[in-house]
Design a binder for these strands. Sequence first.
DNA 1: AATGAATGAGCATTCATTCAT
DNA 2: TATGAATGAATGCTCATTCAT
Lengths: 211, 211, 211, 211
Amino acid sequence: MTSQKSSSARLQTAPPPTAKEPKRKRGIARVAKLLDAGAAVFAEQGYKAATMTEIAARAGAPIGSLYQFFPNKDVLADALIARYAEHVEAALDRIRAEARELDGTQLGDRLLDVLVTHATERSLALSLLDARWEQPGVRPGILRENLRRRIAEILSIWRPDLAEDQAQAMAVVLFQAMKSLVQLHEEKRYPGKAEAIAQWRGWVQRYLGEI
Amino acid sequence: MTSQKSSSARLQTAPPPTAKEPKRKRGIARVAKLLDAGAAVFAEQGYKAATMTEIAARAGAPIGSLYQFFPNKDVLADALIARYAEHVEAALDRIRAEARELDGTQLGDRLLDVLVTHATERSLALSLLDARWEQPGVRPGILRENLRRRIAEILSIWRPDLAEDQAQAMAVVLFQAMKSLVQLHEEKRYPGKAEAIAQWRGWVQRYLGEI
Amino acid sequence: MTSQKSSSARLQTAPPPTAKEPKRKRGIARVAKLLDAGAAVFAEQGYKAATMTEIAARAGAPIGSLYQFFPNKDVLADALIARYAEHVEAALDRIRAEARELDGTQLGDRLLDVLVTHATERSLALSLLDARWEQPGVRPGILRENLRRRIAEILSIWRPDLAEDQAQAMAVVLFQAMKSLVQLHEEKRYPGKAEAIAQWRGWVQRYLGEI
Amino acid sequence: MTSQKSSSARLQTAPPPTAKEPKRKRGIARVAKLLDAGAAVFAEQGYKAATMTEIAARAGAPIGSLYQFFPNKDVLADALIARYAEHVEAALDRIRAEARELDGTQLGDRLLDVLVTHATERSLALSLLDARWEQPGVRPGILRENLRRRIAEILSIWRPDLAEDQAQAMAVVLFQAMKSLVQLHEEKRYPGKAEAIAQWRGWVQRYLGEI
DNA sequence: AATGAATGAGCATTCATTCAT
DNA sequence: TATGAATGAATGCTCATTCAT
């Protein structure tokens, strides 16, 4: 009575659903549109409030198409995280490659830019990196962990004499500062915004300069 | 968000629904319990995922009773914000009263503590102060604005020579730092947590010390 | 991300959903109507094809009401089985009480009547007792097992010298004969129906008479 | 069940969709595989729960290919019935050819074997011959009618002095007994299974022996 | 006034069927 | 002709809110 799918489903655990790679040109464009729409809606409304119907509508796609590629809401969210993670990790890798040649001010700037550029994804970042969402073993937590580790690595390359746990703690601080800057950017308009953002940057630069 | 379909709505503007003030002792206690339950559930699940039924259940109250005092979910959320605002504003007022006698380190500590103490409400704070909740004219934005203004006032009292827009920008930075510390606290457990929190505090103290 | 309900749900396994007992008069009547509608629709269309919407509509109830009492389709089906089981088991108990005084013809007739009377539930029986539906540990299988055991008991009381496994095998045969008679009754109209039903009865009577 | 909304349907009656006869060797093999897969899936899950996608997948064929030969689910089901009917009718024809030389025991055995052999199709038979499915003018009813008529013919040949309506009623009884034996076989495992099956056979043999 | 059953719009998801490639 | 992506109506189920008791 309980779900009972294909007979095999009773024996082997069904494979965890994953995003399907589009094969034809049309599909690739559509998946991109769906991801964009998903990013926008998740960012605006949060995971729970975002509706698959609205995401599909905003992508100009029928609901069935959305489900063709992303068999459920979780998978879509994961795909979004993965896409975002790629950007961010690539950016961090680039910084790492040149870390040795940067001074504190430069490194601070470069790190802060990682999350702040890509205006499109900035507000998604807020959702994705949010510590709430948490469910053990699920993506956002892994992403945060991952990013913090990469930042710590950059710090260790940058100042090889830094103790490992020092680098770790600093990475946490820096990562928080990076997210905070996004928050400062994203809030709609408030007195002192521009100046505050400038101060925040300066603050981070000094934090690294003092090492 | 407010759906409001009472037939009269077409003719006269219906009065905006508001939380009902409890009159008797019994009511006061019940409202407190409902608010506590609401805070807990909103904090755990977020606004959308929180259900009125669970909130009532967790308060040990019948659902009808919940609606007696809070005619809809929005009103409950607003009431939660208001209650939280009271705490926080009171705390800021206390700091303001003694601002003149504090040095940078002390002021930093005191400000940071404002959001971090009250462990119960800490994760609610994250929800409430989140820039994403935004809905034009709705509470969280007003609260943020309000708190930033008060912080600016404290700064002006503390360093009377500070230009007004300087104080304003610093207030934005400090408020962001305060929220960030809550985030650092609230995320479940991650390497470097304790040390990072300590560094964050030190960072804020220095920020104020440098003035 | 996966469902995440009340925080407790993460720790304790959520209690398996069960039918809610109606408390007020209105509810009792409504539940009865819902069960009748469910019986009709399940009987006509089978478990999978039956839709909750149609069941609610046929009971003249809004869908929400259906779910108020039967939190999901499985629970409704289980309740139906339970209701049916009660009738049938009671009928078998009555036969058992007088088994000793019956001759083979009488016992055969009485057993055959158990499933055939209650015209309303006759076609539900076909669904419920159907060996397909099967899913280990789920109701219909348990019901069949149960009924066969009771029939075997009746046989043992009726002819105390019967070996236990003899009684068991005979119970299987008789139970199958009982279900078959329902099938003979339920098929809409076909040549020879009345006479065939009579022969089937006679056949069963002789089967018991020969013991 | 047939939804049929081609625009032409409003003007000319659309020709009822039918299974397409495969022309080439490749097609014949593929159709056979599709039918096998269909039989398996329908048998396991029932008509409604079986999905065209799974049937195609299990046949290793693309879904488009399935629809090439069977323009909708009903047509596939009908084709399955037709294929099954052929087997069974052929088997009955063989019995008819030698009916005159059989005694009751032998005839009973031969008839019972008709549905019980072909283990693969046994559980499909349960689905196909099931009196629910009924939809006016649809295949399973016709098949049942057909089989009963053939059984009646066999009886008339076997005992030429049997009145026609006597043969008819007996055919109904025998056909029911044949289906019941399949049910006894198909139910997974239960105490007394083997012995009950033996008794059922004996019972049918005696039924015919008494004529 | 207090309660909790009743309501139904809305949500995630499935799947028969079509049709562009 | 053969394929499998695309489509959207239909399904099971939830939950804010109302209202009879």
